[in-house]
Simulated scan of single mutants.
Amino acid sequence: MNTQAMEKPAKVAKNGVDVPTLLATIGVVKDAPPAAQFQFRAKGEWVNGTHSRATVNGFFGAGEEQSRAQDFVIEGDHPAVVCGADKAPTPVEYLLSALAACLTAGVGNIASVRQIDLDSVETTVEGDIDMQGILGLDDNVRNGFNTIRATVKIKGDAPAEALERVVQQSIARSAVFDMLTNGTKVDVTAVAA
Score class of each variant (00 low, 15 high):
Pro159His: 07
Gln70Tyr: 11
Ala150His: 07
Thr90Ala: 10
Lys153Phe: 05
Arg114Thr: 12
Thr151Asp: 01
Asn2Gly: 14
Ser97His: 10
Ala160Lys: 08
Gln168Met: 14
Asp77Pro: 07
Ile129Ser: 06
Ile134Tyr: 08
Ala158Gly: 11
Thr123Ser: 07
Glu64Ile: 15
Lys8Arg: 15
Asp117Thr: 10
Thr124Leu: 01
Gly106Trp: 02
Asp71Ile: 11
Leu163Thr: 01
Glu7Tyr: 14
Gly183Trp: 00
Ile134Ala: 04
Ile74His: 00
Thr50His: 15
Met1Phe: 13
His78Trp: 05
Val141Glu: 00
Asp178Ser: 09
Asn140Asp: 09
Asn146Tyr: 07
Gly133Pro: 03
Phe40Thr: 13
Ala35Gln: 02
Glu164Gln: 13
Val167Pro: 00
Pro91Tyr: 01
Asp128Gly: 05
Ala98Ser: 15
Pro34Asp: 07
Gly156Phe: 06
Gly133Phe: 02
Arg68Lys: 15
Ala32Arg: 13
Gly127Cys: 04
Gly133Ala: 04
Gly133Asp: 06
Leu22Asp: 02
Val141Thr: 02
Asp128Trp: 06
Gly49Lys: 06
Ile116Ala: 05
Gln4Tyr: 14
Ala36Lys: 09
Ala36Arg: 08
Lys11Gly: 06
Val56Trp: 11
Gly133Val: 02
Glu164His: 07
Ala100Met: 08
Gly58Phe: 09
Thr184Gln: 14
Leu137Thr: 00
Val113Trp: 00
Asp178Lys: 03
Gly58Arg: 15
Gly63Ile: 15
Gln66Val: 12
Asp71Pro: 10
Arg53Met: 12
Met131Gln: 05
Ala100Leu: 08
Gly49Ile: 10
Asn140Gln: 07
Val107Ala: 06
Tyr94Gln: 03
Val92Gln: 10
Gly106Gln: 04
Ala80Phe: 04
Thr181Asn: 15
Met131His: 00
Ile26Gly: 00
Gln37Tyr: 15
Val191Cys: 02
Val81Thr: 08
Phe72Gly: 08
Val107Arg: 09
Thr25Met: 09
Thr124Asn: 07
Val152Phe: 00
Gly183Glu: 01
Met6Pro: 12
Val56Asp: 10
Ala42Ser: 15
Ala192Gly: 09
Glu126Gln: 08
Glu164Asn: 08
Val121Ser: 00
Asn57Ser: 09
Ala101Thr: 11
Ala98Leu: 10
Ile171Ala: 07
Ala35Tyr: 07
Ala100Glu: 05
Asp77Ala: 03
Val121Tyr: 00
Lys155Gln: 03
Leu118Ala: 07
Thr184Glu: 13
Glu164Gly: 01
Gly76His: 04
Val82Gly: 02
Ala54Gly: 13
Leu180Lys: 04
Arg149Val: 01
Ala32Tyr: 14
Gly84Ile: 03
Val73Ser: 02
Ala193Ser: 12
Leu163Met: 06
Pro33Glu: 06
Val191Tyr: 01
Ala158Met: 10
